[in-house]
Amino acid sequence: MNFDILSMEVRWVLGTIGGLLVLATIIVRFLIRLRPEVDFASLSQRITSWWIMVGMFTFAMILSRNISIGFFAFISFLALKEFLSLIPTRRADRRVLFWAYLAIPVQFYWIYLEWYGLFIIFIPVYMFLLLPLRMVIIGQTEGYIRAIGTVHWGLMLTVFCLSHTAFLLILREAGSPGDHPGVGLVLFLVIMTQLNDVCQFLWGKSLGRAKILPKVSPGKTWAGFVGGVATTTVVGWQVGPFLTILDQSQSLVAGLIIGIGGFVGDVNLSALKRDLHVKDSGSLLPGHGGILDRIDSLTYTAPLFFHYVYWSFDWHTFGLSLGKQ
């Protein structure tokens, strides 16, 4: 995906995000100057983290196709590492965890090959069958179910689910294999997922009362959920046809899927953190917490949005050269 093939719309959106960040930075600088008695450290830390995230994401997207795939593989690595550092693991299972890490380069190699068939079953089937075998060879049965269950669950969430973003990026339509609709689709997915997080938070803050999942996430309200999903659906309906190959009605459905999926991904990780009695999943991104805190919604929206797009068009991709069709 080098710069030449980016559509005008993608350039516009990237430019707008950059502009918004510049604006936010100027406002915070101005606030610090204007109100020296207030502590803006957390806010400016957050904006610095946003600069780094947006900058890395943009560069990864525009430099080349393979750098983009490598970037998503690295995000998966960080997420799996954070997950495995967070949960209880057994000393005996170090080698099993090592094999779980090895699944990352393999999974992203299928994406590099555009081999859909293996991409979609490698972790759910082959790693699912392989990891227990490795664990059985070690032979420690005490805590076996919990150990194998947690490792594979984490692998599904942090590698399998997230890797859909990379496959989305390399999709090519059957009618026009020379085009690259993936950049717009990934940008749409990531922006809408982040927007949905923010909207659910803002709606919940402004008129939320009735709690939706008080035991898991006491801060979340019905108003936040409904308002967030509605806003994301409407914005998606408007932005989708501009940024992606989706038409208006498809964009509307995509917005709805991202709105609901993002909420579930968020509370799924909240339940995990509550179980482990931690507030943040890590401290990789100052002001934001860990990487899992940032991508929790994406673990749900990426596969759900991917399959919606995948079923809506005919694709050129997928291992034609490997004798598959």
């Binding site: 590492k81 550092s85 965890l97 890490y101």
Partner: peptide
Amino acid sequence: GEALLVPFF
């Protein structure tokens, strides 16, 4: 006593 490195934070 181990030679295999397994990443954690």
